[in-house]
Amino acid sequence: MEKAQLSRKERDLTPEAFTKFLAILDPDPDVAGGKYEDLRRQLIKFFEWRGALFQDELADETLNRLARKIDEGEEIEKNVIALSLGIARFVFLETLKRPDNRRTEMKELSAVAAPPERREEDDDLWTVCLRECLLGVSDENRALIIEYYQDEGRARIDDRKILAARLGLSLNALFSRAKRTRDKLEECVTRCVKRKSKGRHESP
């Protein structure tokens, strides 16, 4: 993937500034690390839902700017999330103005317009990879993901209530658990598809 053209100054962050940022998130470094990852995930989603490209890099850029602001002594009036969102919106607006971003969009669009005969083959590859990745998940989480995402509409809602009651979890806790497993599986499947596609194209 092409890197977003961010200046070196924008990307660099001193360890002191980063430590100060973590301390704002939580006094316990382990808890702070977890909160940092959660915040990063949320920012990636923000950029994704805004339709931006290179969401990971834009999220990192947002976090770096936030850390620098904290290091420079900026007071956090509401909460870290609110401040991050404000910065993220600026970062997003900047990407819209960048000419290289438009060029990449064209490249992205050409990927959407793949010939239809490739699509079915790709579908199979994703399914094959998902089966492989499911074997690497614990039995408990495998059962959870299948039960959680079965059916649709009313039946799905009822099933989830039954499943939550059986596991002694609230519906929100059940969703978080299923979602974590789903996200991990998607990452595993994406890596697997990339690996297999590369092998397929390299073979004669």
Partner: peptide
């Protein structure tokens, strides 16, 4: 974007399995 298309491809595989 490609990340969203990846979600869609994954969802297809997941619902199938």
């Amino acid at each position: 974007n490609s990340r969203r298309r990846r979600h869609a491809m994954f969802a297809k595989a997941l619902t199938k399995v």
